[in-house]
Design a protein around this nucleic acid. Structure first.
Lengths: 346, 346
DNA sequence: CATTGGCACTCTAGCACTTAGAGTGCTATG
DNA sequence: CATAGCACTCTAAGTGCTAGAGTGCCAATG
């Protein structure tokens, strides 16, 4: 095996280091790598290559007489250039299907099971975010008086979600007027995403000058019911206990930091909201995370769609030493199945 | 201090052992107790009393040369007979008020903050269960077609909760018919709890024989929309990270077991559902828990009310070595404030 | 000239051993 | 009945040592 392309060997050795470290959680020595290559390359050669990789910042030494450990940069190179697409086994797929498609009609339960599925298959903490209302498309609204001083508004979206809210009103509204407004809104707002409704109506309001203005104003006011368009920011979260088996958490302080990252709802929400803009898998490794709580973990996210429209995202969070290949394939699979299940429900 | 009542001394020594152990997490020796009593009782005497307490199964020895640790039975006696009512400080109350009353109109956010409050003040994992729909009182229903094949049902309860669901129908229904049914249900069901509606209607259905039967059957069918009365079993859960600071969790296996207990939604739900039947604080110490996952923890629960009706419960879960006094007063206070906040919202 | 074997060196994990100290139980005494 | 004293026990923590894993460097090699 002389005169092998030096670059490709570096790659395969980095790959071996990452694989072995992900597998065993102990620093990887030159002997172990040599063994992986069935001794076609000697430990000494591997030591030289490893020294190069270390100089490039891809792997590091915990101390002189220890093996090598991938750095964040090393993992990054690995996932970008070395990782080969993986497939779930039939058994894994059937576990996921059972959890997602046999959870009944309860969205809450489906979401919970989806996050459990991520956790079980990939040995990480699984996270599922409820569909973003803002991205849903308006289909239907109903308004009615529940008593003299309050109106109930119910909006149904094309993806079958229902959002409602109660509003106090100072001046009474007649049934006819309410029906009139309902009819108007239903014809006017069809096909608009909930996120755009408000700006759409204010724009419209600016154009109007005549008697219609008062009517439109009234309709707009009703739609500003507090909470009607509020994001339904629920994060489902599963698998904290099982992840404690990872050897990195024998140090309880690290476990605590990890749990803190998981509980950092704001940080996760920001990340998911941003990531879901683009389609597909997004990976954030260790220090790459802007959020300081997460700089010791890796977060992998994937959007999911209902009828072709991106509505929200799912994620996995675990130690930087995670099985990226498996995590990616699980998220891809689950995002697809979850979307399908929600479509059937809508 | 001769000839002191032997029973009362045992009590105060048990109390001192529990207090000291809760405080320091290290087995309590006779010297330390003696010091607590400002040396008015000698260590030797205390050793005798402790030997008695041990024989009674209230405290135990981890090993010969260690101090004493309360047993589950010891904690039980402590909370039943020795614990004096505690009050929160003004600062603590103001932290709680801020979290609960300044969370806006978003129920989701209020619940989340309430569980956070439990966690922060009492150093335990805080749990809040959403109001049980079954216990809510029917106030108003609206039914309408969203398209040819589907009906949307919306139920409003007296406590201001809104529950809705979509139902597929095979045979079309006219607007008038639907309005008729709506009107009927609104007049018929007022004041009935959602949990009783189904049995109420079936009872009614059995009595009817004439033409009215078909109408009533239709109405009943509509109300059997899947999910319309499904319990909204959401558990808010906060503080896993902060609880890892407790010395009992330096052993990661214990931390894992504890997290597993927290993630055991079914077990918690059963416990909460059962406990909320009775008013006030309920305490489950270690092995007293039926659920095997929880036998190393203590769970303290407290129902909460909306307008005088028990609707759900909150809880604290932590190591058996928890500040029972503080946990109890926090849960009492928060259950009260949470109920108040939800009343204002309704 | 890349690859390899050899070798000296380094660092850690683990084990045996020791010791200080905290705590007990028992007994004799006030 | 309460207490002081004493012998005894057990743990936690520190020390010293060793085996072994791993490295870096150098000289030899095809």
């Amino acid at each position: 095996m002389k005169h092998v392309d030096i670059e490709s060997r570096r790659k395969s050795i980095l790959s071996a280091v990452v694989d072995s470290y992900v597998d065993t959680a102990t620093p990887v020595g030159s002997r172990a790598i040599s063994q992986r290559f069935r001794y076609t390359i000697s430990p000494a050669t591997i030591r030289n290559v490893m020294a190069d990789l270390e100089e490039m910042g891809l792997i590091m030494h915990p101390h002189t007489s220890a093996g090598r450990v991938p750095t964040d940069k090393g993992y990054r190179f690995y996932v970008d250039s070395l990782l080969e697409p993986e497939h779930l086994t039939k058994e894994e797929e059937s576990i996921i299907n059972k959890l997602i498609h046999q959870a009944g009609n309860d969205i809450d339960y489906i979401m919970q099971n989806a996050s459990k599925a991520i956790s079980i298959i990939a040995n990480v903490v699984g996270i599922v975010l409820t569909p973003r209302l803002k991205r849903s498309i308006f289909k239907h609204i109903e308004l009615f008086n529940i008593d003299d001083s309050r109106i109930l508004a119910v909006i149904v979206t094309t993806s079958g979600f229902i959002k409602n809210s109660i509003m106090d009103i100072e001046e009474g509204i007649t049934k006819q007027e309410l029906a009139h407004i309902t009819e108007f809104l239903n014809s006017e707002l069809e096909g608009i995403s909930l996120g755009e409704i408000k700006s759409y109506l204010t724009r419209k309001l600016l154009e109007e000058r005549d008697s219609f203005y008062t009517f439109l104003k009234r309709a707009t006011d009703i739609l500003s019911i507090p909470g009607l368009f509020r994001a339904d920011d629920h994060l489902y979260f599963e698998g904290a206990a099982c992840i404690m088996s990872h050897p990195e958490f024998t140090d309880i302080r690290k476990a605590k930091l990890f749990l803190r990252a998981c509980e950092d709802k704001k940080g996760l929400l920001n990340l998911l909201n941003e990531d879901m803009e683009r389609d597909g898998i997004k990976i954030h490794i260790g220090k790459e995370n802007v959020d300081s709580e997460m700089q010791d973990c890796s977060v992998v996210t994937c959007n999911y769609k209902i009828n072709g429209t991106i509505v929200s995202a799912i994620a996995a969070i675990g130690p930087t030493r995670m099985e990226y290949g498996k995590v990616i394939s699980v998220l891809k699979y689950i995002s697809h199945e979850l979307g399908k299940e929600l479509e059937n429900l809508g």
